[in-house]
Each structure stands twice: as structure tokens, then as C-alpha cells.
Measured scan of single mutants.
Amino acid sequence: KELVLVLYDYQEKSPRELTVKKGDILTLLNSTNKDWWKIEVNGRQGFVPAAYLKKL
């Protein structure tokens, strides 16, 4: 499993997105899109802007 660090808080703006908090370490599911990465948070899957995340 690949992990990502959340660099900035992000509030979901659609049902396909997820809310994340700065400092969270989460599972990366897909990073093929350069702008939006798919991650998992508490069993939910969704997208967060790639600029808000850093691969560990």
C-alpha cells in the first residue's frame, strides 16, 4: 500500500471527494490523474486534489 501525507485541509465539494485534515496519513488508491488522487479515509473512497497530498 502506498501512503500519502495531507499537506493542507481540504473540504469536500462533491460526493466524489473526501474531506481531509493537514497531517493525516492516508492510503493512496490511484494517482494516475495528475490533478486528482483517489484515497481512502475511514473506509470511504474518494478524490482529493493532488496538490494537497505528498507521497510517503
Rank of each mutant, 00 (worst) to 15 (best):
K55E: 08
Y10Q: 01
D24N: 09
P15Y: 10
L3F: 13
S14A: 10
Y8E: 15
L26P: 05
L29H: 07
F47Q: 04
P49D: 02
W36K: 03
T32Q: 14
V48I: 07
A51L: 12
A50C: 06
K22R: 15
T27S: 11
D35A: 12
T27R: 14
I39A: 10
G46C: 04
V41F: 15
D35R: 14
Y8L: 11
E2H: 12
K22I: 05
G43Y: 06
A50Y: 02
Q45A: 12
K34T: 15
N42L: 10
I25D: 00
L29F: 04
T19M: 06
E17H: 07
E40M: 11
L56R: 03
K22P: 03
S31F: 08
E2F: 13
Y52Q: 04
D9A: 06
N42R: 09
A50P: 06
L28W: 02
P15K: 09
R16A: 15
R16V: 13
W36H: 04
A50D: 01
L28D: 00
V6K: 00
P49Y: 02
L29G: 02
A51E: 13
G43L: 05
R16S: 11
K55P: 13
K22N: 05
F47Y: 15
K13P: 06
K21R: 13
T32Y: 11
R16P: 07
K38G: 06
Q45P: 12
L26E: 06
Q11T: 14
T19A: 08
N30W: 07
K38N: 09
V20E: 00
V4E: 00
L56G: 03
N42D: 15
Q11S: 11
T27Y: 14
L18C: 08
Y8T: 10
T32L: 11
D35M: 12
V4N: 00
E17N: 08
L53G: 01
Y52D: 02
E40T: 07
L29W: 06
G43W: 05
L5A: 06
T19C: 05
L18S: 05
G46Q: 02
A50R: 09
L53R: 00
E40I: 08
P15M: 08
N42C: 08
L53W: 01
I25C: 05
Q45F: 10
G43M: 07
K34G: 12
D24G: 04
N42F: 09
L56P: 02
V48T: 02
E40A: 09
V48R: 00
Y10C: 01
Y8M: 13
L53C: 06
P49C: 03
G46M: 08
L53Y: 01
L29D: 02
P49T: 01
L53N: 00
E12Y: 07
V41Y: 12
T19K: 07
I39K: 00
S31Q: 11
V48L: 10
K1F: 14
R16K: 15
I25W: 03
K21H: 15
K1G: 15
W37F: 05
E17W: 05
K21G: 06
V4Y: 05
R44P: 01
L28C: 07
L7S: 02
T27L: 14
Q45E: 14
V6Y: 00
L26N: 04
L56W: 10
T32S: 12
T19L: 04
F47P: 01
A50W: 02
Q11F: 14
K55Q: 10
K34H: 15
K55N: 08
G46F: 05
G46R: 03
T32D: 14
S31R: 08
K55R: 14
V48S: 01
Y8A: 12
L29I: 14
K22Q: 10
D24S: 15
L5F: 08
K38Q: 12
D9Q: 03
I25E: 03
I25R: 05
I39D: 00
W37I: 01
S14P: 09
I25K: 05
K13Y: 03
K1Y: 15
G23L: 02
N30Q: 10
Q11Y: 13
P49A: 03
P49E: 02
Y10D: 00
